[in-house]
Design a protein around this nucleic acid. Structure first.
Lengths: 201, 201
DNA sequence: GTCTATAGGCAGATAGAC
DNA sequence: GTCTATCTGCCTATAGAC
């Protein structure tokens, strides 16, 4: 990825389509129409679709990791960090330039995870890393929160983090199927309140 | 769907492929190879791929609904019903005829939900119904369990049911990405224990 | 960097013989 | 019910001019 303006525009178009339809359901032709160039020109920037996919998820993972870093630096406690994380994924459903609720987008990481077996190996690798990184980050926040007394839950933080991540990703699919973005909020609010200590409930 | 032997064999092959790759990533050719007939013959049973998809998810939904009915009749309490439901989805990952752990399958309903925007309308309708039915069933079990004192959680049963369903479906994708079916178990066990009343924890 | 032109393959679907 | 043959259109990717 060379970070030229064109390649960024290609990635922007690809990300929107991948978040809505998935990696296997958009084509170089779709991209070409949106960016205003020819399909052959896209191959100049990304020789194969696997190259494109790898750049796409890598850029997305870097963005999410940045926000997580910010959350850790600026949020005072674990519950706030978790709320910030849920909001990050929610924001991804309706990015700045789009009409809030019904964009039809879901988290790119979750979408690619659902397509995992059909993905080129280089894309699979990045998806695996994305999921691992996010679950590990959540496990860290969860464990720290329990130690500090701002969260309360039984069992392993690892298992809780996996369940939480799975629920957030899955809730996007459920919300989209129902055509109701509010379902995502309702489910995540419930989850986060279930992790609050009895004193805060 | 006429329930002939051939059409059932087609649906069996289609279900396996759809659970692994998704609806958009298997073809009539894939089916023809597995069933041992020609693609044109499949069109005799299912004129369009949308017809096939509708029959596929309808059959699956009916099976899941049957198991849920059994669970309600035979299980003594809500925690047992929820464990049975989680086990049902887990069993779906590794059906009788396949090698347990790494079948690469996920719940058909979750897979189709992830492909929702690209699905033919008649398939979307059945997917919506599947998700609704399952969340409603879970909400009913959850509410009854709380009333009976065998479950403990705060907030709306609807929101809890959505979160639980989302978590179970999402955990399959996470487990598959990690190549570790045990992750599904770990996440669901944690979730169910989090719903247990303090006395049972 | 972007273009035209094209290759080679696969998709879903149909016509009509048997 | 299953077959052969075929249609039309889309896909990723490449060659080579500008």
């Amino acid at each position: 990825m060379q970070n030229t303006e064109t390649s960024e525009a290609i990635l922007d178009a690809a990300q929107e389509l991948a978040q809505i339809r998935g990696y296997n359901a958009f084509s170089y032709r779709d991209l070409a129409e949106r960016v205003g160039i020819r399909t052959a020109s896209i191959h100049y920037h990304f020789p194969t679709k696997g190259d494109l996919g790898r750049s796409l998820i890598a850029r997305y993972a870097a963005y999410v990791a940045d926000v997580c870093d910010d959350l850790e630096r600026r949020s005072p406690d674990a519950p706030t960090r978790l709320r910030g994380y849920a909001a990050l994924l929610e924001q991804v459903l309706a990015p700045p330039g789009s009409t809030a609720a019904g964009s039809g987008r879901v988290c790119l990481g979750g979408m690619l995870a659902s397509e995992y077996p059909t993905l080129p190996p280089e894309v699979q690798q990045e998806v695996r890393r994305f999921v691992d990184d996010n679950v590990r980050w959540l496990a860290r926040v969860l464990a720290a929160g329990r130690d500090a007394g701002t969260l309360a839950f039984a069992g392993a933080a690892d298992a809780a983090a996996t369940a939480l991540f799975a629920a957030l990703e899955g809730a996007m699919f459920v919300a989209r199927t129902a055509g109701d973005a509010g379902r995502y909020r309702a489910a995540t609010d419930w989850l986060l309140s279930a992790l609050a200590p009895p004193s805060a409930r």
